[in-house]
Design a protein around this nucleic acid. Sequence first.
DNA 1: ATTTATTGGTTTGTATACAAGAAGTCAACC
DNA 2: GGTTGACTTCTTGTATACAAACCAATAAAT
Lengths: 223, 223
Amino acid sequence: MDAYKFIKDAIILGKYVPGMRLGEETLAKELNLSRTPVREAIKQLEAEGLVVPLKRGVGVRSFTKEDIKEIYDLRSLLESYAASQAAMHRNEADLIELKTANELYEKAIHDHLQSDMASIRKIVKVNQRFHEAIVSAAKNKHLHFHISKVVVVPIVFRSFYWYSDFHLQQSLEVHKIIYKAIENKEAERARIAMHEHIFQGRDNVLNHLNDIKISHFFRGEPG
Amino acid sequence: MDAYKFIKDAIILGKYVPGMRLGEETLAKELNLSRTPVREAIKQLEAEGLVVPLKRGVGVRSFTKEDIKEIYDLRSLLESYAASQAAMHRNEADLIELKTANELYEKAIHDHLQSDMASIRKIVKVNQRFHEAIVSAAKNKHLHFHISKVVVVPIVFRSFYWYSDFHLQQSLEVHKIIYKAIENKEAERARIAMHEHIFQGRDNVLNHLNDIKISHFFRGEPG
DNA sequence: ATTTATTGGTTTGTATACAAGAAGTCAACC
DNA sequence: GGTTGACTTCTTGTATACAAACCAATAAAT
Protein backbone atom coordinates (compact mmCIF):
# COMPACT_ATOMS: atom_id res chain seq x y z
CA MET A 1 0.00 0.00 0.00
CA ASP A 2 1.00 3.57 -0.58
CA ALA A 3 2.69 4.88 2.54
CA TYR A 4 1.69 8.50 2.02
CA LYS A 5 -2.03 7.78 1.73
CA PHE A 6 -1.97 5.29 4.56
CA ILE A 7 -0.39 7.66 7.04
CA LYS A 8 -2.48 10.62 5.92
CA ASP A 9 -5.72 8.66 6.29
CA ALA A 10 -4.63 7.36 9.66
CA ILE A 11 -4.08 10.93 10.85
CA ILE A 12 -7.40 12.20 9.47
CA LEU A 13 -9.38 9.30 10.91
CA GLY A 14 -7.70 9.73 14.27
CA LYS A 15 -5.84 6.44 14.35
CA TYR A 16 -2.62 8.37 14.79
CA VAL A 17 -3.49 11.00 17.36
CA PRO A 18 -1.94 14.49 17.61
CA GLY A 19 1.29 14.61 19.55
CA MET A 20 1.96 10.95 18.83
CA ARG A 21 5.43 10.28 17.59
CA LEU A 22 5.75 8.49 14.26
CA GLY A 23 8.76 6.20 14.26
CA GLU A 24 10.01 5.11 10.86
CA GLU A 25 10.66 1.52 11.85
CA THR A 26 7.22 1.17 13.43
CA LEU A 27 5.44 2.57 10.38
CA ALA A 28 7.53 0.43 8.07
CA LYS A 29 6.56 -2.71 9.96
CA GLU A 30 2.86 -1.76 9.95
CA LEU A 31 3.00 -1.17 6.20
CA ASN A 32 5.18 -4.16 5.37
CA LEU A 33 7.69 -1.87 3.73
CA SER A 34 11.22 -0.76 4.36
CA ARG A 35 12.09 2.57 5.92
CA THR A 36 13.00 4.21 2.61
CA PRO A 37 9.49 4.73 1.17
CA VAL A 38 8.18 5.58 4.64
CA ARG A 39 10.75 8.35 4.99
CA GLU A 40 9.66 9.84 1.69
CA ALA A 41 6.01 9.82 2.73
CA ILE A 42 6.94 11.56 5.96
CA LYS A 43 8.90 14.24 4.12
CA GLN A 44 5.83 14.99 1.99
CA LEU A 45 3.50 15.14 4.97
CA GLU A 46 5.96 17.44 6.68
CA ALA A 47 5.97 19.75 3.65
CA GLU A 48 2.17 19.89 3.92
CA GLY A 49 2.26 20.57 7.62
CA LEU A 50 0.35 17.49 8.74
CA VAL A 51 3.28 16.23 10.75
CA VAL A 52 5.86 18.34 12.56
CA PRO A 53 9.38 17.75 13.89
CA LEU A 54 9.29 16.02 17.24
CA LYS A 55 12.29 14.72 19.14
CA ARG A 56 14.56 13.80 16.23
CA GLY A 57 11.81 12.57 13.95
CA VAL A 58 8.23 13.65 13.48
CA GLY A 59 4.90 13.49 15.27
CA VAL A 60 1.29 14.14 14.33
CA ARG A 61 0.57 17.83 14.46
CA SER A 62 -1.78 19.01 17.16
CA PHE A 63 -3.92 22.10 16.80
CA THR A 64 -4.41 24.86 19.31
CA LYS A 65 -7.50 27.02 19.36
CA GLU A 66 -5.48 29.74 17.67
CA ASP A 67 -4.52 27.31 14.90
CA ILE A 68 -8.15 26.48 14.26
CA LYS A 69 -9.15 30.14 14.10
CA GLU A 70 -6.35 30.88 11.66
CA ILE A 71 -7.09 27.85 9.50
CA TYR A 72 -10.75 28.73 9.21
CA ASP A 73 -9.92 32.35 8.38
CA LEU A 74 -7.62 31.18 5.63
CA ARG A 75 -10.09 28.63 4.37
CA SER A 76 -12.91 31.15 4.23
CA LEU A 77 -10.68 33.55 2.30
CA LEU A 78 -9.75 30.91 -0.28
CA GLU A 79 -13.13 29.26 -0.63
CA SER A 80 -15.21 32.40 -0.76
CA TYR A 81 -12.92 33.59 -3.52
CA ALA A 82 -13.38 30.23 -5.21
CA ALA A 83 -17.14 30.62 -5.00
CA SER A 84 -17.08 34.06 -6.61
CA GLN A 85 -14.79 32.83 -9.36
CA ALA A 86 -17.00 29.78 -9.85
CA ALA A 87 -19.98 32.06 -10.40
CA MET A 88 -18.06 33.79 -13.16
CA HIS A 89 -16.45 30.82 -14.87
CA ARG A 90 -18.73 27.85 -14.32
CA ASN A 91 -19.90 25.87 -17.33
CA GLU A 92 -22.78 23.41 -17.71
CA ALA A 93 -20.71 20.42 -16.62
CA ASP A 94 -19.75 22.25 -13.42
CA LEU A 95 -23.41 22.95 -12.66
CA ILE A 96 -24.31 19.30 -13.10
CA GLU A 97 -21.56 18.19 -10.73
CA LEU A 98 -22.57 20.82 -8.19
CA LYS A 99 -26.20 19.79 -8.39
CA THR A 100 -25.34 16.12 -8.08
CA ALA A 101 -23.14 16.72 -5.05
CA ASN A 102 -25.84 18.75 -3.38
CA GLU A 103 -28.56 16.21 -4.05
CA LEU A 104 -26.38 13.50 -2.53
CA TYR A 105 -25.75 15.82 0.39
CA GLU A 106 -29.48 16.29 0.89
CA LYS A 107 -30.07 12.56 0.75
CA ALA A 108 -27.23 11.80 3.19
CA ILE A 109 -28.55 14.32 5.69
CA HIS A 110 -32.09 13.03 5.28
CA ASP A 111 -30.95 9.45 5.88
CA HIS A 112 -29.01 10.54 8.91
CA LEU A 113 -31.89 12.47 10.47
CA GLN A 114 -34.15 9.46 10.53
CA SER A 115 -31.66 6.81 11.47
CA ASP A 116 -28.32 6.64 13.30
CA MET A 117 -24.85 8.16 13.46
CA ALA A 118 -23.37 5.66 11.04
CA SER A 119 -23.97 7.87 8.02
CA ILE A 120 -22.00 10.85 9.27
CA ARG A 121 -18.94 9.82 7.28
CA LYS A 122 -21.09 9.76 4.19
CA ILE A 123 -22.18 13.32 4.88
CA VAL A 124 -18.58 14.41 5.30
CA LYS A 125 -17.62 12.84 1.99
CA VAL A 126 -20.44 14.41 -0.01
CA ASN A 127 -19.92 17.79 1.61
CA GLN A 128 -16.31 17.61 0.52
CA ARG A 129 -17.42 16.74 -2.98
CA PHE A 130 -19.56 19.89 -3.15
CA HIS A 131 -16.77 22.12 -1.93
CA GLU A 132 -14.31 20.57 -4.34
CA ALA A 133 -16.74 21.04 -7.20
CA ILE A 134 -16.83 24.76 -6.45
CA VAL A 135 -13.08 25.06 -6.40
CA SER A 136 -12.94 23.10 -9.62
CA ALA A 137 -15.49 25.41 -11.25
CA ALA A 138 -13.34 28.41 -10.30
CA LYS A 139 -10.89 27.30 -12.99
CA ASN A 140 -7.73 28.17 -11.15
CA LYS A 141 -5.47 25.13 -10.79
CA HIS A 142 -3.17 26.86 -8.34
CA LEU A 143 -6.05 27.87 -6.10
CA HIS A 144 -7.23 24.27 -6.21
CA PHE A 145 -3.78 23.03 -5.31
CA HIS A 146 -3.51 25.31 -2.29
CA ILE A 147 -6.96 24.69 -0.91
CA SER A 148 -6.29 20.98 -1.05
CA LYS A 149 -3.20 21.58 1.06
CA VAL A 150 -4.89 23.59 3.80
CA VAL A 151 -4.65 21.28 6.76
CA VAL A 152 -8.30 21.54 7.51
CA VAL A 153 -9.40 18.01 6.79
CA PRO A 154 -8.83 16.47 10.24
CA ILE A 155 -10.80 19.32 11.80
CA VAL A 156 -13.70 19.40 9.37
CA PHE A 157 -14.02 15.66 9.60
CA ARG A 158 -14.49 15.78 13.34
CA SER A 159 -16.64 18.87 13.31
CA PHE A 160 -19.49 17.08 11.57
CA TYR A 161 -19.95 14.85 14.58
CA TRP A 162 -20.92 17.92 16.58
CA TYR A 163 -23.51 19.33 14.25
CA SER A 164 -27.03 19.42 15.62
CA ASP A 165 -29.85 18.31 13.34
CA PHE A 166 -30.84 21.93 12.95
CA HIS A 167 -27.35 23.01 11.89
CA LEU A 168 -27.11 20.18 9.40
CA GLN A 169 -30.30 21.32 7.72
CA GLN A 170 -29.17 24.92 7.85
CA SER A 171 -25.90 23.88 6.20
CA LEU A 172 -27.89 22.21 3.44
CA GLU A 173 -29.90 25.37 2.88
CA VAL A 174 -26.74 27.45 2.53
CA HIS A 175 -25.36 24.94 0.04
CA LYS A 176 -28.47 25.49 -2.03
CA ILE A 177 -28.12 29.26 -1.83
CA ILE A 178 -24.50 29.01 -2.95
CA TYR A 179 -25.52 26.77 -5.81
CA LYS A 180 -28.22 29.17 -6.94
CA ALA A 181 -25.82 32.11 -6.83
CA ILE A 182 -23.29 30.23 -8.94
CA GLU A 183 -25.96 29.15 -11.37
CA ASN A 184 -27.17 32.75 -11.74
CA LYS A 185 -23.59 34.04 -12.04
CA GLU A 186 -24.04 36.23 -8.97
CA ALA A 187 -20.39 36.32 -7.90
CA GLU A 188 -20.68 38.59 -4.90
CA ARG A 189 -23.64 36.72 -3.50
CA ALA A 190 -21.81 33.42 -3.86
CA ARG A 191 -18.77 34.87 -2.14
CA ILE A 192 -20.68 36.16 0.83
CA ALA A 193 -22.78 33.03 1.22
CA MET A 194 -19.67 30.86 1.23
CA HIS A 195 -17.96 33.14 3.72
CA GLU A 196 -20.95 32.88 6.01
CA HIS A 197 -21.14 29.13 5.52
CA ILE A 198 -17.56 28.55 6.58
CA PHE A 199 -17.82 30.91 9.52
CA GLN A 200 -20.81 28.95 10.76
CA GLY A 201 -18.59 25.88 10.68
CA ARG A 202 -15.90 27.79 12.49
CA ASP A 203 -18.28 28.94 15.22
CA ASN A 204 -19.55 25.42 15.62
CA VAL A 205 -16.05 24.06 16.15
CA LEU A 206 -14.99 26.85 18.50
CA ASN A 207 -18.13 26.51 20.63
CA HIS A 208 -17.33 22.88 21.22
CA LEU A 209 -13.77 23.76 22.11
CA ASN A 210 -15.10 25.95 24.89
CA ASP A 211 -16.86 23.01 26.47
CA ILE A 212 -14.19 20.41 26.15
CA LYS A 213 -10.52 20.48 26.99
CA ILE A 214 -8.61 21.25 23.78
CA SER A 215 -5.82 18.91 24.73
CA HIS A 216 -8.26 16.02 24.83
CA PHE A 217 -9.99 17.11 21.76
CA PHE A 218 -7.88 16.06 18.93
CA ARG A 219 -6.75 12.89 20.58
CA GLY A 220 -8.70 9.78 19.87
CA GLU A 221 -12.06 9.24 18.23
CA PRO A 222 -14.30 12.12 17.30
CA GLY A 223 -17.14 12.53 19.77
CA MET B 1 25.09 20.77 1.61
CA ASP B 2 21.36 20.47 2.07
CA ALA B 3 19.88 18.91 -1.06
CA TYR B 4 16.49 20.62 -0.74
CA LYS B 5 17.91 24.12 -0.58
CA PHE B 6 20.44 23.46 -3.27
CA ILE B 7 17.91 22.24 -5.81
CA LYS B 8 15.38 24.91 -4.92
CA ASP B 9 17.91 27.70 -5.34
CA ALA B 10 19.12 26.20 -8.59
CA ILE B 11 15.57 26.29 -9.93
CA ILE B 12 14.90 29.84 -8.76
CA LEU B 13 18.18 31.16 -10.13
CA GLY B 14 17.56 29.42 -13.43
CA LYS B 15 20.47 26.98 -13.27
CA TYR B 16 17.98 24.17 -13.67
CA VAL B 17 15.66 25.38 -16.41
CA PRO B 18 11.95 24.49 -16.78
CA GLY B 19 11.30 21.26 -18.58
CA MET B 20 14.73 19.95 -17.65
CA ARG B 21 14.67 16.48 -16.24
CA LEU B 22 16.24 16.02 -12.80
CA GLY B 23 17.91 12.65 -12.56
CA GLU B 24 18.60 11.38 -9.07
CA GLU B 25 22.03 10.02 -9.86
CA THR B 26 23.11 13.26 -11.54
CA LEU B 27 21.93 15.41 -8.63
CA ALA B 28 23.54 13.07 -6.15
CA LYS B 29 26.89 13.34 -7.90
CA GLU B 30 26.66 17.13 -8.09
CA LEU B 31 25.90 17.31 -4.38
CA ASN B 32 28.39 14.64 -3.34
CA LEU B 33 25.60 12.71 -1.71
CA SER B 34 23.87 9.40 -2.22
CA ARG B 35 20.50 9.13 -3.90
CA THR B 36 18.59 8.70 -0.65
CA PRO B 37 18.66 12.31 0.62
CA VAL B 38 18.25 13.57 -2.95
CA ARG B 39 15.04 11.57 -3.33
CA GLU B 40 13.65 13.08 -0.15
CA ALA B 41 14.40 16.58 -1.34
CA ILE B 42 12.66 15.84 -4.62
CA LYS B 43 9.59 14.52 -2.83
CA GLN B 44 9.34 17.77 -0.88
CA LEU B 45 9.76 19.93 -3.96
CA GLU B 46 7.10 17.87 -5.66
CA ALA B 47 4.70 18.45 -2.76
CA GLU B 48 5.31 22.18 -3.20
CA GLY B 49 4.77 22.03 -6.93
CA LEU B 50 8.20 23.28 -7.96
CA VAL B 51 8.97 20.07 -9.80
CA VAL B 52 6.48 17.84 -11.60
CA PRO B 53 6.45 14.22 -12.74
CA LEU B 54 8.32 13.80 -15.99
CA LYS B 55 9.10 10.53 -17.68
CA ARG B 56 9.42 8.28 -14.65
CA GLY B 57 11.07 10.84 -12.44
CA VAL B 58 10.70 14.59 -12.16
CA GLY B 59 11.55 17.72 -14.07
CA VAL B 60 11.56 21.44 -13.33
CA ARG B 61 8.07 22.83 -13.69
CA SER B 62 7.48 25.21 -16.54
CA PHE B 63 4.84 27.91 -16.44
CA THR B 64 2.32 28.77 -19.10
CA LYS B 65 0.79 32.21 -19.41
CA GLU B 66 -2.34 30.81 -17.75
CA ASP B 67 -0.26 29.56 -14.83
CA ILE B 68 1.22 32.99 -14.31
CA LYS B 69 -2.18 34.66 -14.37
CA GLU B 70 -3.54 32.19 -11.87
CA ILE B 71 -0.53 32.44 -9.59
CA TYR B 72 -0.69 36.23 -9.49
CA ASP B 73 -4.45 36.14 -8.81
CA LEU B 74 -3.85 33.80 -5.91
CA ARG B 75 -0.94 35.80 -4.62
CA SER B 76 -2.88 39.05 -4.74
CA LEU B 77 -5.74 37.42 -2.84
CA LEU B 78 -3.44 36.15 -0.09
CA GLU B 79 -1.18 39.17 0.21
CA SER B 80 -3.88 41.81 0.09
CA TYR B 81 -5.61 39.91 2.89
CA ALA B 82 -2.29 39.81 4.72
CA ALA B 83 -1.95 43.58 4.32
CA SER B 84 -5.40 44.25 5.76
CA GLN B 85 -4.75 41.91 8.67
CA ALA B 86 -1.36 43.51 9.23
CA ALA B 87 -3.05 46.90 9.53
CA MET B 88 -5.23 45.48 12.28
CA HIS B 89 -2.70 43.44 14.21
CA ARG B 90 0.69 45.10 13.70
CA ASN B 91 2.73 46.02 16.76
CA GLU B 92 5.67 48.38 17.15
CA ALA B 93 8.24 45.73 16.29
CA ASP B 94 6.40 44.98 13.06
CA LEU B 95 6.45 48.65 12.11
CA ILE B 96 10.18 48.86 12.70
CA GLU B 97 10.85 45.84 10.51
CA LEU B 98 8.57 47.20 7.79
CA LYS B 99 10.26 50.59 7.91
CA THR B 100 13.72 49.02 7.80
CA ALA B 101 12.85 46.84 4.84
CA ASN B 102 11.44 49.78 2.97
CA GLU B 103 14.43 51.99 3.66
CA LEU B 104 16.73 49.27 2.38
CA TYR B 105 14.45 48.95 -0.64
CA GLU B 106 14.74 52.66 -1.31
CA LYS B 107 18.50 52.53 -0.99
CA ALA B 108 18.81 49.49 -3.27
CA ILE B 109 16.70 51.13 -5.96
CA HIS B 110 18.62 54.38 -5.61
CA ASP B 111 21.93 52.55 -5.96
CA HIS B 112 20.64 50.72 -8.97
CA LEU B 113 19.37 53.80 -10.75
CA GLN B 114 22.77 55.44 -10.72
CA SER B 115 24.93 52.45 -11.44
CA ASP B 116 24.52 49.06 -13.10
CA MET B 117 22.37 45.94 -13.21
CA ALA B 118 24.44 44.12 -10.61
CA SER B 119 22.27 45.29 -7.74
CA ILE B 120 19.01 43.87 -9.06
CA ARG B 121 19.33 40.78 -6.91
CA LYS B 122 19.68 43.03 -3.90
CA ILE B 123 16.42 44.75 -4.83
CA VAL B 124 14.67 41.39 -5.17
CA LYS B 125 15.88 40.32 -1.74
CA VAL B 126 14.81 43.49 0.05
CA ASN B 127 11.46 43.54 -1.71
CA GLN B 128 10.89 40.01 -0.47
CA ARG B 129 11.81 41.12 3.03
CA PHE B 130 9.12 43.82 2.94
CA HIS B 131 6.45 41.45 1.72
CA GLU B 132 7.40 38.86 4.32
CA ALA B 133 7.27 41.49 7.04
CA ILE B 134 3.69 42.25 6.10
CA VAL B 135 2.68 38.61 6.19
CA SER B 136 4.43 38.27 9.50
CA ALA B 137 2.58 41.29 10.89
CA ALA B 138 -0.73 39.70 9.89
CA LYS B 139 -0.22 37.22 12.75
CA ASN B 140 -1.60 34.18 10.98
CA LYS B 141 0.98 31.40 10.88
CA HIS B 142 -1.05 29.33 8.44
CA LEU B 143 -1.40 32.24 6.03
CA HIS B 144 2.35 32.71 6.29
CA PHE B 145 2.95 29.06 5.59
CA HIS B 146 0.80 29.07 2.47
CA ILE B 147 2.12 32.27 0.98
CA SER B 148 5.62 30.92 1.34
CA LYS B 149 4.54 27.90 -0.66
CA VAL B 150 3.00 29.79 -3.57
CA VAL B 151 5.35 28.97 -6.39
CA VAL B 152 5.83 32.57 -7.31
CA VAL B 153 9.46 33.01 -6.45
CA PRO B 154 11.02 32.00 -9.78
CA ILE B 155 8.67 34.38 -11.58
CA VAL B 156 9.04 37.35 -9.27
CA PHE B 157 12.78 36.95 -9.31
CA ARG B 158 12.92 37.25 -13.07
CA SER B 159 10.29 39.97 -13.28
CA PHE B 160 12.53 42.50 -11.57
CA TYR B 161 14.93 42.36 -14.47
CA TRP B 162 12.19 43.79 -16.68
CA TYR B 163 11.20 46.71 -14.53
CA SER B 164 11.85 50.12 -16.05
CA ASP B 165 13.39 52.78 -13.84
CA PHE B 166 10.01 54.44 -13.69
CA HIS B 167 8.23 51.29 -12.56
CA LEU B 168 10.83 50.64 -9.91
CA GLN B 169 10.26 54.07 -8.42
CA GLN B 170 6.53 53.64 -8.69
CA SER B 171 6.82 50.32 -6.86
CA LEU B 172 8.73 52.08 -4.10
CA GLU B 173 6.00 54.68 -3.78
CA VAL B 174 3.33 52.00 -3.43
CA HIS B 175 5.41 50.30 -0.75
CA LYS B 176 5.38 53.56 1.16
CA ILE B 177 1.62 53.92 0.79
CA ILE B 178 1.13 50.38 2.07
CA TYR B 179 3.40 51.10 5.00
CA LYS B 180 1.51 54.27 5.89
CA ALA B 181 -1.82 52.46 5.72
CA ILE B 182 -0.57 49.74 8.03
CA GLU B 183 0.91 52.27 10.42
CA ASN B 184 -2.41 54.15 10.53
CA LYS B 185 -4.37 50.92 10.91
CA GLU B 186 -6.30 51.59 7.72
CA ALA B 187 -7.04 48.00 6.80
CA GLU B 188 -9.09 48.55 3.69
CA ARG B 189 -6.63 51.02 2.23
CA ALA B 190 -3.75 48.62 2.87
CA ARG B 191 -5.68 45.83 1.19
CA ILE B 192 -6.46 47.80 -1.92
CA ALA B 193 -2.97 49.23 -2.23
CA MET B 194 -1.44 45.77 -2.00
CA HIS B 195 -3.88 44.40 -4.53
CA GLU B 196 -2.97 47.18 -6.92
CA HIS B 197 0.73 46.67 -6.24
CA ILE B 198 0.66 43.00 -7.13
CA PHE B 199 -1.47 43.55 -10.19
CA GLN B 200 1.07 46.03 -11.46
CA GLY B 201 3.65 43.31 -11.13
CA ARG B 202 1.34 40.92 -12.92
CA ASP B 203 0.80 43.33 -15.79
CA ASN B 204 4.51 43.89 -16.08
CA VAL B 205 5.20 40.17 -16.39
CA LEU B 206 2.37 39.54 -18.83
CA ASN B 207 3.42 42.44 -21.05
CA HIS B 208 6.84 40.92 -21.42
CA LEU B 209 5.35 37.56 -22.22
CA ASN B 210 3.57 39.15 -25.16
CA ASP B 211 6.89 40.20 -26.62
CA ILE B 212 8.89 37.10 -26.06
CA LYS B 213 8.14 33.48 -26.76
CA ILE B 214 6.94 31.92 -23.51
CA SER B 215 8.81 28.74 -24.24
CA HIS B 216 12.08 30.66 -24.27
CA PHE B 217 11.15 32.67 -21.35
CA PHE B 218 11.68 30.54 -18.38
CA ARG B 219 14.66 28.81 -19.84
CA GLY B 220 18.05 30.21 -19.06
CA GLU B 221 19.15 33.47 -17.54
CA PRO B 222 16.70 36.25 -16.80
CA GLY B 223 16.91 38.99 -19.41
C1' DA C 1 8.19 4.50 -45.46
C1' DT C 2 5.81 3.72 -41.38
C1' DT C 3 4.70 0.97 -37.68
C1' DT C 4 5.53 -2.65 -34.40
C1' DA C 5 8.21 -5.90 -31.67
C1' DT C 6 12.20 -7.03 -29.23
C1' DT C 7 16.12 -6.15 -26.73
C1' DG C 8 19.56 -3.57 -24.22
C1' DG C 9 20.62 0.12 -21.35
C1' DT C 10 19.35 3.52 -18.06
C1' DT C 11 16.77 5.06 -14.06
C1' DT C 12 13.78 4.63 -10.47
C1' DG C 13 11.77 1.78 -6.39
C1' DT C 14 12.86 -0.83 -2.44
C1' DA C 15 15.62 -3.18 0.91
C1' DT C 16 19.38 -3.45 3.98
C1' DA C 17 23.61 -2.35 6.34
C1' DC C 18 26.32 0.72 8.85
C1' DA C 19 27.52 5.01 11.20
C1' DA C 20 26.41 8.97 13.89
C1' DG C 21 23.78 11.18 17.16
C1' DA C 22 20.08 11.81 20.43
C1' DA C 23 17.48 10.46 24.48
C1' DG C 24 16.84 7.95 28.37
C1' DT C 25 18.79 5.51 32.45
C1' DC C 26 21.35 4.51 36.21
C1' DA C 27 24.58 5.67 39.47
C1' DA C 28 27.49 8.54 41.99
C1' DC C 29 28.37 12.76 44.01
C1' DC C 30 27.11 17.30 45.74
C1' DG D 1 16.89 14.71 47.32
C1' DG D 2 18.24 16.60 43.30
C1' DT D 3 21.61 17.25 39.79
C1' DT D 4 25.28 15.93 36.89
C1' DG D 5 27.84 12.72 34.18
C1' DA D 6 28.86 8.69 31.62
C1' DC D 7 26.99 4.78 29.41
C1' DT D 8 23.71 2.14 26.89
C1' DT D 9 20.25 1.75 23.68
C1' DC D 10 17.28 3.13 20.24
C1' DT D 11 16.35 6.01 16.11
C1' DT D 12 17.51 8.59 12.44
C1' DG D 13 20.82 9.86 8.44
C1' DT D 14 23.39 8.13 4.65
C1' DA D 15 25.30 4.86 1.50
C1' DT D 16 25.00 0.99 -1.41
C1' DA D 17 23.18 -3.07 -3.66
C1' DC D 18 19.71 -5.32 -6.18
C1' DA D 19 15.36 -5.77 -8.68
C1' DA D 20 11.96 -4.07 -11.67
C1' DA D 21 9.98 -0.96 -14.73
C1' DC D 22 10.46 2.10 -18.37
C1' DC D 23 12.56 4.36 -22.45
C1' DA D 24 14.86 4.31 -26.53
C1' DA D 25 17.01 2.35 -30.31
C1' DT D 26 17.26 -1.00 -33.68
C1' DA D 27 15.53 -4.31 -36.63
C1' DA D 28 11.89 -6.62 -39.01
C1' DA D 29 7.50 -6.86 -41.23
C1' DT D 30 3.55 -4.89 -43.52
